[in-house]
C-alpha cells in the first residue's frame, strides 16, 4: 500500500465535505438563531444577546426537563445493562446452541421495530380498558390500571419500553461477548468448585469490563433519542412529568408558541453538554 495513489483523496473528500457541511452549518446556525428572538410566525428577528440563555435558567419547566432527562438516562442505561447482562448470561448458561440462535433472533425483534411502532404497540397494551398488559390487573381487582396517566408511573412505563427494545438486543451482544471468552478460566474455576454466579461476578464480568463500558456508552447516546417513545406514549404528560429536554425544546419551538430562538438556545446547551460529556467518556473508554 505504499505506492502513491489518488485513492484516499478521491474516496474521502466528497464524503467528508458533505458530512462537514451538514454537521457544521446547522450547528453554527443553531447558535446564530439562539442569539435572536425569532419566532415561527415572524421570519426576521433581532439580536438579543444571551437573553434566551438567561431566561432558561429561571424557567422551571426547563429545570424540570433537565431532571427528567437525567432520570431517564440513569434509569434506561442502568436497567438496560442489568437486563442485558442477566439475560445474556442465562442465554449462555441455559440454552443449547440451536435454541440460543433462535432466541437471539427473537430478542433482536423489538429493537428493529420503528420506535413509533414500539411506542404504539405498548401504548395500546397499557390501555386501561382494552390493553393486554393491564388486563390481568383489571381481571383480578376489577379496577382499570392507567399507568401512563399516573404521574408516579408514567416515566417508568415509557422507560420499560425502551429497556424492552435495548435490553433484549444488548443481551444478544453480551451472549456473543461471552462466546468469545476463552473457556480455560471457567473450567479452572469449576474445578475449584466455584458456584456459577461466582464464576460470572469474579471472572466473566471483569474480563468483559471494557466492552460492557462501551455498551453503556452506546446506550447513553441512544437514550438521548427518547423523543419518539415519549411523544407517542405521553407527549410529556401527565403534566410535565415525562417532559425530557428534547420534548420541551420541541414543544417550545413548535407546538405552543413557536419560539424557535428559545428552543434553539436549549438545543445549543444540549449540544454543548452532550459533546463535552461524551468526548470525555470516549477518551476515557479508549
Amino acid at each position: 500500500m505504499k505506492q502513491k495513489t489518488s485513492l484516499p483523496a478521491v474516496f474521502l473528500t466528497p464524503a467528508m465535505m458533505i458530512l462537514a457541511v451538514l454537521a457544521f452549518v446547522p450547528t453554527v446556525y443553531a447558535i446564530y438563531i439562539s442569539l435572536q428572538n425569532r419566532e415561527l410566525s415572524r421570519p426576521v428577528g433581532d439580536f438579543v444577546g444571551l437573553a434566551n440563555y438567561i431566561d432558561l435558567f429561571s424557567d422551571r419547566r426547563f429545570i424540570n426537563a433537565i431532571g427528567v432527562s437525567l432520570t431517564w438516562e440513569a434509569v434506561t442505561v442502568g436497567m438496560t445493562l442489568i437486563v442485558a447482562v442477566g439475560l445474556g448470561i442465562l442465554l449462555f448458561e441455559c440454552a443449547a446452541p440451536r435454541m440460543r440462535n433462535m432466541l437471539a433472533l427473537l430478542f433482536l425483534m423489538p429493537v428493529i421495530l420503528p420506535r413509533v411502532s414500539a411506542a404504539f404497540v405498548w401504548k395500546f397494551a397499557f390501555h386501561p380498558l382494552y390493553g393486554i398488559a393491564t388486563y390481568p390487573y383489571k381481571a383480578i381487582t376489577g379496577q382499570p390500571l392507567d399507568l401512563l396517566s399516573n404521574p408516579a408511573t408514567a416515566l417508568a412505563t415509557v422507560a420499560l419500553v425502551d429497556v424492552w427494545q435495548w435490553g433484549l438486543f444488548f443481551a444478544v451482544i453480551v451472549l456473543k461477548l461471552l462466546e468469545t471468552l476463552p473457556p480455560q478460566p471457567f473450567e479452572a474455576a469449576r474445578l475449584d468448585h466455584a458456584r456459577t454466579w461466582e464464576i460470572y461476578t469474579h471472572i466473566a464480568i471483569p474480563m468483559l469490563k471494557a466492552p460492557l463500558i462501551s455498551l453503556a456508552f452506546v446506550k447513553m447516546i441512544e437514550s438521548l433519542r427518547a423523543f419518539d417513545l415519549i411523544y407517542v406514549m405521553t407527549r410529556g404528560g401527565p403534566g410535565i412529568t415525562t417532559e425530557t429536554l428534547d420534548m420541551y425544546a420541541f414543544s417550545q419551538g413548535f407546538i405552543e408558541s413557536g419560539r424557535i430562538s428559545y428552543a434553539s438556545s436549549m438545543a445549543v446547551l444540549m449540544m454543548i453538554a452532550t459533546s463535552i460529556a461524551f468526548t470525555f467518556i470516549w477518551k476515557r473508554v479508549q
Binding site: 450547528t27 438563531i33 429536554l245 428534547d246 470516549w282
Partner: peptide, 18 residues
Amino acid sequence: LSLRFLPPVAIAIPLMVI
C-alpha cells in the same frame, strides 16, 4: 462517531430554519 452525539432536536431546529 461524534455526529451520533448530536441530539437530533439540536440538528432539526436549525435545519428547519435553514
